[in-house]
Simulated scan of single mutants.
Amino acid sequence: MKVAVAGLGWWGKQIIRSLGNSTKFKVVVAVDPMVTDDGRQFARESGVELAADLAEVLGRSDIEGVILATPHSLHEQQVLSALEAGKHVFCEKPLAMTADGAQRIVDACARQGKVLGVGHERRFEPAIVELMRMVRAGELGRLLHMEANVSHDLFRKLDPSNWRLDQKHAPAGMMTAVGIHITDIFVALAGGASSVRARTESLVFPDPVRDFTTATIAFGSRVQATISFLSVTPFHGRIAVFGDKGWVEIVSQGNVDQGLPTRLTHCSGTGVPPMERVYEANDAVLANFEAWADAVAGLGQYPFTAGELVDNIKLFEAIVQSSERGGEAVAL
């Protein structure tokens, strides 16, 4: 599939590097209205064209798909424009900033008959794949509770003007960076949320940048969850899922782009020694893109339903609202 990548920042470059290892993609052009000298050099070395105007690229007949790695508040309109131009779209997370926006996107995809990809590569990590298989196979029994803390300090290196620290694009601290991945997994396992209480705080970053986010979530299935994310501490990644027949804990050693192993621990009963498995890192980013390409080609089903995508943004929006209201409960 011949594609354009919009956004030539850190993650846009990472996407182009990953797609360079695939026979299913050819990145034709990178789009960025404010490209840096480093971006120009990267484009030359990667053998891709540079363009400043996404609308111009959407008019090109040689572009089959568009990949968006742009500031978050731009996603909805850019996705809708790409669909209107007849392109398949892969959008980095979050898909939209509101549930209504996410619904407009999935409805437009259905009307246009296009496949929507989304940047939730964590579902393609081997340990997460195994966790989801175990839960869906009933190996943990009835699902009861889920919890996660995924934190890192990469944002401390950013210039204060970076859009990733802007509340317009990245409200509720780390929710748009790492939290939205966790809620995607939890929604896939437990269904849509019914209520949430969330708090954020500026402990290290200057206000209004939030460096701490925590939330308690109730799902319609009556499963409960707690999540917390910090953007000022060395990397920590832990997800745990509990059922009435056992639990699973997943501990990651590094971010998805660092190529480090992940440990999965499974306890099936009191007094039964837990089983541990170590999963070597895969290119989960590329696995996600190739699943999207296969779905576009009619060779497989992309493993995200429209309902899951909208329910995840509903939960994200509720977390933002609750945190802005000092932890007030928000019903979905």
Score class of each variant (00 low, 15 high):
R60E: 03
T233N: 04
R40S: 03
G269L: 08
A329M: 14
N21I: 00
D211R: 05
C91Q: 12
P94R: 08
V118P: 00
P94C: 08
V248Y: 00
A291S: 15
D100M: 06
V89K: 09
V272H: 14
V310G: 02
M132S: 11
Q112K: 15
L230E: 14
F219A: 10
E125M: 15
S46W: 01
E49P: 02
S151P: 03
V248F: 02
L158T: 03
E249M: 14
M146E: 03
S252D: 12
I63E: 06
R111M: 06
D244M: 12
V320R: 06
V5P: 05
M34I: 10
F242Y: 15
E328F: 04
D244F: 09
V35G: 09
A287R: 15
H88N: 13
R122L: 09
V196Y: 07
A127L: 04
N255T: 08
D38H: 12
V256M: 02
L68M: 06
V3S: 04
E139M: 07
A108T: 05
A82Q: 04
N162P: 00
W163H: 11
F304I: 01
D32K: 09
R136L: 00
H72N: 13
V223E: 06
L95V: 06
V5F: 08
R133N: 12
F316G: 12
K93M: 05
R222K: 15
R263G: 00
H152Y: 08
Q253N: 14
V310A: 01
E249W: 02
S322E: 06
R122M: 11
W11Q: 10
G59H: 02
S161W: 00
P303R: 02
A295P: 04
L154Q: 09
D294Y: 11
T98Y: 03
F186S: 10
N149S: 13
M34F: 15
A306H: 15
L158D: 01
G269H: 09
Y302G: 02
R164A: 09
F124N: 06
L299V: 03
A4W: 07
V106A: 04
Q321F: 00
V118K: 01
P126Y: 07
R60N: 03
A297M: 10
V178H: 03
D159W: 01
P33W: 09
G47N: 03
G7W: 04
Q77E: 15
V241A: 10
I16Q: 02
A284L: 01
I250N: 00
A188D: 12
R133K: 14
A51G: 08
A102M: 07
A193P: 06
A240W: 07
V35K: 07
A293M: 04
A52V: 09
G246P: 08
V320Y: 06
L95Q: 05
I15L: 11
G192P: 11
F212R: 15
K314I: 05
L165N: 03
R277C: 02
G20A: 06
K168S: 00
G269Y: 09
S151C: 08
D153N: 14
A4L: 08
R199V: 07
A291D: 08
V251C: 04
I217K: 10
I217Q: 11
A55V: 07
P273F: 05
